[in-house]
Amino acid sequence: MKQWIAFWNILLKDMRAYYLKPPNISWGLIFPIAWTGMFFIRSGRGLDSILELLPGVVTISVLFGTTSMLAVTVTFEKKSRSFERLLLAPIPLELLMFAKTGGAILFGVTNAFVPIILAAFLADLSSVDWLVVFPTIVLLAFASTFLGLFIAVSVSEVFEAQTFSNFVRFPMIFLCGLFFPVSDLPMFLRPLSYLFPVTYGVDILHGAVRQENTLPLGLDFLIIAAFCVALFAMSLKNIHRKWIV
C-alpha cells in the first residue's frame, strides 16, 4: 500500500508539473491536427482518405505525445539531482520508473484520441475494430514511452536527450509504414523499418481500420510487447549502471 501511495503521487506530480501544462496540451492538440490536415490535403482524395491516414496520424500522435516530455521528466530531473530524491525512496526501481513513465503513457493514449475524435466527425468509422485499436494504442504508448526512456537514461544532458529523440522519431515517420507501406521503401531501407516497434503497432492499426496489415496481428502484438519488455529492462540496466555508480 505504501509503495502505491508513492507510485500514485509521483505520477500525479509529473502530470501536474509537466503534462497538464498549457504548452503541452496545445502541442498535443495542434500536432495531430496539423499532420492530419497536411496528409489530408496532400492525398487530394477528400474524405475518402481519412481511414487510410488514421493509423499513421494516431501513431504519430502517440509517438510524439509520449516522448516529448521524457527529456524533462527524467534527464532534467537527473541533471538537477531531484531524481536522487526518487532513487532514495523506499520503492523498487521498476515501480519508480513505471510511475515516471506513467504520465507519458497516459498523455500518449489521450493524444491518440484527438485524431480519432476528429475522424469520427468526417468519416464512417463503423468498420473499425475498436477491440484491436484500443489495446494497440496502449501498447504503442508503452513502446514509444520506453523508447524515449531508453534514450533519456542513456544520456546525461537534456539537449542530448532531445537531439537523440528527434534523431529516432523523425525517421520513424517515414520508415515505419505510417503513411505509405514499408514495401514502398527502397529495398535497402526495409530492414531498418523492422528495428522500430512502431512498425508493428501501425501495422496492427492498418489491420484494425482497413484490414491491410502485412504481418499476422498476433505476431505484431508479440513483437511490440517484446520491444516494451526489452526497452524497459535496458533502461533499468542503464540506470543501475550509470546512475548508481
Binding site: 505504501k2 501511495i5 508513492a6 500514485w8 509521483i10 506530480k13 508539473a17 523506499p90
Partner: peptide
Amino acid sequence: NLYPELTGFDNLCFCAALYGI
C-alpha cells in the same frame, strides 16, 4: 534538490508521499 515548480508545502507533501505517508 527539491522541485522548483512546486510550493514549499507541496514539496514536503510529495516527499512524505514517497515514504507512503
